[in-house]
């Protein structure tokens, strides 16, 4: 038996919103420790990894590990039937899970709705992602990162990210001209959500597709801050941390000529 009840149901809506543009089908891997998801986009150059700890649910019950194969478009349609303040419970039979039960309860418990989502077999590649010491780790307001991606898309479909000890610079070059945004580290003790920090082992300069990066910024509502981790010749890591876990996006850099 699998059961996971999330008091803050709106979080599940936001999470789905942050994944569904990148991936259409995905396995939710359920275990004693929580729920995780790893999936790549069609071209296999971007990867999303989601982790939700069991402690974030009340209650959480999972007797043995199993996977829920879900079409995210279908799940999204059903999730639209949940109110923003609803408590959401996910239920499935772990021995023969061919459907996922979703229970939406309003705060006064007067209205309960129940939906069953048909599950599917999804045969997906699963990559092992090692813990990495990145050359550069940047924390910045998530809304700022979203704005930079949106603004620079006016100029080009690619952005070069340069990180040095005292600034992170985003540069775009296109047919109409060029644009860049530079941010310096700031620490605002009274407003930590607005601070920018740079941890640097060595300077990095990497180019990425803005289409993917702006897709990743769908995670913005999940966290005030975003973490960007860069190393030469490695995929960029974009992480949004939540109380209950995290969502991590990886993107292969543009290489060659």
């Amino acid at each position: 038996m699998f059961e996971a009840r999330l008091t803050q149901g709106a979080l599940l809506k936001r999470l789905l919103d942050s994944v569904k543009e990148l991936v259409t089908d995905a396995n939710f891997d359920c275990s004693e420790t929580g729920i995780s998801l790893q999936a790549m986009d069609n071209s296999h150059v971007a990867l999303v990894s989601l982790s939700l700890r069991a402690e974030g649910f009340n209650p959480y019950r999972c007797d043995r590990g199993f996977s829920l194969g879900v079409n995210l478009n279908s799940l999204n349609k059903i999730m639209k039937c949940a109110g923003n303040e609803d408590v959401i419970t996910l239920k499935a039979d772990d021995s023969s899970a061919d459907s996922l039960c979703l229970l939406f309860e309003n705060s006064s418990n007067e209205r309960v709705s129940e939906y069953e989502l048909k599950l599917m077999d999804i045969d997906q590649e699963h990559l092992s992602i090692p813990e990495t010491d990145y050359d550069a780790t940047v924390m910045m307001p998530s809304a700022e990162f979203q704005r930079i991606c949106r603004d620079l898309m006016v100029v080009s479909e690619s952005v070069t990210i340069d990180v040095s000890k005292d600034e992170i610079k985003f540069t775009a070059e296109g047919e109409l001209g060029t644009g860049n945004v530079k941010l310096k580290p700031t620490s605002t003790i009274d407003k930590p959500e607005e601070s920018i920090t740079i941890e640097l082992g060595q300077t990095v300069s990497l180019q990425f597709s803005l289409k993917y990066l702006s897709n990743f910024t769908r995670g913005t509502p999940l966290s005030d801050q975003v973490m960007l981790c860069l190393s030469d010749n490695m995929p960029l890591l974009v992480e949004y941390k939540m109380d209950i876990g995290y969502i991590r996006y990886y993107l292969a850099p543009k290489v060659g000529d």
Partner: peptide
């Protein structure tokens, strides 16, 4: 033009 390499070239298969 510059292009992206598939993720499986960076991370190994489980």
């Amino acid at each position: 033009t510059r292009s992206q390499i598939r993720m499986s070239r960076y991370f190994s298969n489980n």
